[in-house]
Write a protein that binds this DNA or RNA. Structure first.
Lengths: 195, 195
DNA sequence: CATTTATACGAACGATCATTCGTATCTATG
DNA sequence: CATAGATACGAATGATCGTTCGTATAAATG
């Protein structure tokens, strides 16, 4: 019944790729149609509108982030370990689905007014949970007493190049990359330890 | 003679703001005209085209980055100090002109084909100089032997939230923010020193 | 085989886009 | 005052946009 046709999946995939390359506003339905070898009008046999494409990509990715955050907070109680797992998840998702990650991160502002409100609300929820982890880490004396908002934004923003730049990282380097990102975020890039 | 009229400056300023909010493609000349209290056709008494606005913003900001990089490399020879000054400059520019910084960072892909080539070439030059600083720091044993491209992208990307998110930082907090960003990038967020 | 259902298409619609043109007004200079 | 140049405007142009509609074909169902 509610089976997702292969063609529909293909449309979403190509739409995400085009949204990443040119941005939502600069991507025409004609361009999407061309990418999936259809005429423009034929697209509407599969999707309702251009904005539906954007909505699906944004909220599906948002759901993945929310689910991951919840799972991580359930599974571990050490806040530093939780942070590590969050960075792990961001990295894996960015490498596995960079186009969706970019659309999620950059193009959500082109959603309709009510969808934007819903989206921002989800993101605020996510950030709130992130901040709580930092609070716990600081209370436990594990994390430096730096302003938590600045820590959070720097960590999240510092991972954005993974999907924004088109540097493809081979799968066998993925764990090396994650270890490097963890080292940088947790211990910085300076060798000497006199802080 | 080559005096820049106040109205022209105003147009560039409002254009950058709109490009940041809605993106280049989704910003109409009518919206820009409305923001500076003009009719659309009147804009063309001051500027040549919509793309000229984008070009000016992108390449002016690119020039600022290139100049800063050159000045820093001339003034200091300690690579860690050079990195510190780069982070300082990114932060100051992001806080002082966040709209231009966003356009520079996100909207350059809407430049024409030849301008994109020129822009990417400048950015590659900048990144090359950044990498050289990291090489020197690693050779001197000051910077951890992590992959340099990953270090560079993480640092630069980790500063992007300063202009991307609309968190206004009051001027008297600016130095505190810079110190926090330096601490995070150089030494991480973890208290314990057993690495 | 007959009938429904899903998919594809060409043509067209109204809206909006960036830009141009002729003209009017305003400002500064002779 | 007269003239010239800069600035502002309304109207129009051609292009492109997302979407709809009627129809045709292909696939699935009875």
């Amino acid at each position: 019944m509610t089976e997702i046709s292969a063609k529909k999946q293909r449309i979403y995939q190509e739409a995400a790729r085009l949204f990443q390359d040119r941005g939502y506003a600069a991507t025409s339905m004609r361009a999407i149609a061309g990418a999936v070898d259809l005429e423009v009008s034929s697209l509407y046999s599969h999707i309702r509108s251009k904005e539906e494409l954007l909505q699906e990509i944004c909220f599906r990715t948002a759901g993945q982030f929310m689910d991951a955050m919840q799972a991580i907070r359930r599974k571990w109680d050490n806040p530093v370990r939780q942070l590590e797992e969050i960075i792990r998840f961001h990295t894996r998702l960015a490498l596995q689905d960079p186009t969706s990650a970019t659309v999620f991160s950059d193009e959500w502002k082109h959603l309709g007014p009510e969808e934007v409100k819903s989206f921002v609300s989800m993101r605020r929820n996510y950030e709130q949970q992130f901040l709580e982890i930092l609070v716990q880490g600081q209370r436990a004396g594990l994390i430096r007493d730096l302003p938590r908002h600045w820590i959070m934004h720097t960590i999240i923003s510092g991972l954005a190049w993974l999907y924004r730049t088109q540097h493809p990282v081979p799968p066998d380097e993925q764990e090396h990359l994650i270890q490097t990102l963890l080292a940088m975020n947790l211990h910085g890039i300076i060798k000497s330890q006199n802080v």
